[in-house]
Design a protein around this nucleic acid. Structure first.
Lengths: 218, 218
DNA sequence: TAGATTGTTAATCGATTAACAATC
DNA sequence: TAGATTGTTAATCGATTAACAATC
């Protein structure tokens, strides 16, 4: 049964399923089951079956799931099968790391431009991109019909740049800056990767122990 | 009333509260309320009060919360008030970005070492750290009693390195590699920052629309 | 004082888990 | 066929929201 409203939690688990399925495939495993996958991932078989049932039927009674098929299904659900053009704003170390190392193509993205405003960086080549001046941003986005922007510049200008991007037609923002963007347009998707929130979570669990760990003083 | 078992969701919201409180303080706001903060953040006042009540009482009836005081309280809950030594493994672009830009001190961390295995990188200086050969890892960690490691090297060696780190005494791992670490020790805390999961989530919402958005064809 | 807002208890809502008939 | 495992419905569990007495 396909659900109309799918919860955020389900969606957050999909990439993880994909990751583990990939691992199975790389090990040469052809077929799996909710039981096996659940054991591997530390989740209940029920949850896996429930999650998948939001999108259709991908298994077979008595058999389980074909690893390759399920991977393809989830990839498709995640939308990696359509190509989306992306630009990256900020070509400092973080921007360069992402341009150079992150496998955008694997997830259906294609990086078509990198922008910065430092003269020392503009014109330099990273991977096969030439860093351009940020003044070109709107023009380029409109011309190439770019849907996605990756924000790797300083937090200070994040909201201003986000506004410009959206005006130029960008529909999705992958935000590495440490601020929550204030965006009025309800159809624009923002995905935040707040390093500091993540480190604070680590700090919390180191301070308090995981899962209500009992404190013993001996 | 202080809760014994605090849910992960609550913990994930704490850094965000802190972020918004900081913004208020920077705007010169001295006092706030669950109502105001909730409007600002897009959460219910009830949730804020419930969340905070897990840790104690921080407000005053009829008044609300003192911004500075609440910030300090949450910082303390998150454990940023104790100093933790950290090393970073992998001094490529991502590692350098983090070493150079990330304000570890603000969150109670102090970066004491950077490691890599490329000869071209070893010995170079980043911020005020000199990159050392990864062979020194265990010795240094033991000597300095380092609690935390940041993994910014390639995914391939992540699990092997994690094992060495834990053997040497590391209790917390901030994992930027694209794999889930398999760690047996139950007291070791791992916080993952999987770039690819994040981008796939963006991809999902761009494909399906946010919050069950209705599709109209005209 | 009157108004505002807390902390907490109760009510609701949603997500996870368990159970099981269907069937490969 | 018998065993395994699905997809789905029902039961449980937990998290969010609402309500309200306490009180600044």
């Amino acid at each position: 049964m396909r659900k109309t409203k799918i919860s955020h939690n389900v969606i957050l688990r999909l990439p993880r399923y994909l990751r583990y399925l990939e691992e199975l495939r790389n090990r040469g495993v052809v077929r799996t089951s909710s039981g096996e996958l659940g054991r591997l991932m530390g989740v209940t078989p029920s949850q896996i079956r429930q999650d998948l049932s939001c999108y259709g039927e991908f298994g077979q009674q008595g058999y389980g799931y074909n690893v390759e098929m399920l991977m393809n299904a989830i990839s498709d659900i995640l939308g990696t099968t359509r190509e989306r053009k992306a630009v990256i704003i900020g070509a400092g170390n973080l921007g360069r790391a992402i341009i150079g190392k992150f496998p955008f193509e694997q997830y259906g993205f294609r990086l078509t431009g990198a922008y910065d405003l430092a003269d020392s960086i503009i014109g330099t080549e990273i991977a096969d991109l030439t860093v351009r001046h940020i003044d070109r941003l709107e023009e380029d986005i409109r011309e190439t019909r770019t849907e996605v922007a990756v924000l790797t510049m300083s937090s200070a200008s994040a909201n201003a740049i986000a506004g410009r991007l959206i005006d130029a037609g960008v529909r999705g923002i992958w935000n590495f800056t440490n601020v929550d963007l204030t965006i009025s347009s309800p159809s624009v998707v923002v995905e935040n990767l707040h390093f500091s929130d993540s480190l604070l979570t680590l700090s919390y669990y180191m301070t308090h122990g995981k899962s209500g760990e009992q404190r013993t003083d001996d």
